[in-house]
């Protein structure tokens, strides 16, 4: 598919960077779709890798056992993941905050363990023999498609309703928004794109193993969303790109850090939260505590003399109430 474009790209990208770019593209799709749920709708979802797994195994099984073609399998992967999104979303999205996080986390683990124990998926040995049909042009198209659809969606009647739910769920429902239905829709759309990303993943790596879709993958995706900026689509593109490429870079530059990737992620997130609490591309002007602290320090030194003149009346007031 798109072989001419693929040939063109391969002529000036070496195979190592080609592979890195495919991974980045797949992660961008996952991060964008997760951002719709977490960043725009404000629902903490810790099981996004599971929807990716649904898509990956759907495509993998259709390709190896049913002989379905690439595009058909990719579409089926997206649709089946969307169905999973509805099934998981309907009961869990009535929950809020921590409870939703735990429920989605549980779903992810249940699915992983199921894949590990089914015969048809190859269990712990994984699913082999998927043809390599994902290439960079297809990934780029899929990224563009995801980005444009989500951008259009968040700038619409429905997108405004999702953001309203994030901002104040009670006010949103009082303004006529069917909050449960819209939360499930947001979840379903995100699952659809995660399924597509999973299918591209399957057709790229040609081998699937349940451990590729564990809880830590969901956490890494969440880290990419937060790093780039909650509720910022361009931020997700940047977040996924940086956080996919950096470990690759570190592997050659500083392999010791690359092995401790998750420690490094944690540190990076802490730094981002201090310096830019709304993510790298966060647009909100809400100040982080560091900025507030610095501003306070500045004003304290500036008002030093004024503040000292205000101290005496306060201390006499305090003494007046004393036992004397």
């Amino acid at each position: 598919m798109l072989d001419w474009a693929d040939g063109l790209l391969r002529s000036f990208i070496n195979s190592y960077y080609y592979g890195v770019l495919v991974s980045i593209g797949i992660n961008i799709i996952l991060t964008l779709s997760l951002n719709l749920v977490v960043g725009f709708t404000g629902q903490l979802h810790l099981g996004h890798a599971a929807f990716m797994a649904v898509g990956a195994y759907t495509a993998g099984l259709l390709a190896t056992k049913a002989g379905v073609g690439f595009w058909g399998a990719v579409l089926a992967a997206g649709l089946l993941a969307a169905v999973a999104g509805v099934i998981v979303g309907l009961p869990t999205l009535r929950l809020r905050g921590d409870y939703l996080a735990i429920a989605t986390l549980g779903f992810g683990e249940i699915l992983r363990i199921t894949l590990l124990n089914l015969d048809i998926t190859g269990g712990p040995f994984g699913l082999r023999g998927i043809p390599r049909q994902t290439n960079l042009p297809i990934v780029i198209l899929a990224v563009l498609f995801t980005y444009l659809v989500l951008r259009s969606l968040v700038n619409s009647r429905m997108g405004r309703a999702l953001i309203a739910i994030r901002e104040d769920e009670v006010a949103a429902q009082t303004m006529g928004i069917d909050t449960t239905r819209l939360k499930v829709t947001s979840f379903t759309v995100a699952a659809f794109f995660a399924g597509i990303a999973g299918a591209l993943f399957a057709y790229w790596f040609r081998y699937l193993n349940p451990s590729s879709f564990g809880f830590m993958i969901s956490i890494e995706l969440l880290a990419m969303v937060v790093f780039g900026g909650l509720g910022n689509l361009l931020g997700s593109v940047v977040g996924a790109s940086v956080m996919t490429y950096l470990p690759e870079l570190l592997r050659t530059v500083a392999p010791a850090i690359a092995e401790r990737r998750l420690v490094f992620y944690g540190a990076l997130l802490v730094i981002i939260m201090i310096l830019r609490p709304n993510g790298l591309l966060g647009t909100s002007s809400e100040q982080g505590w560091l900025e507030i602290w610095l501003a306070r320090r500045r004003s304290r030194t500036a008002q030093g003399s004024a503040a000292s003149s205000q101290v005496p009346p306060a201390s006499t007031g305090g003494a007046g109430h004393g036992p004397a």
Partner: peptide, 10 residues
């Protein structure tokens, strides 16, 4: 609402 409930970031 008595305690203002706007969509603050919008």
């Amino acid at each position: 609402f008595q305690n203002i409930r706007l969509f603050r970031e919008m």
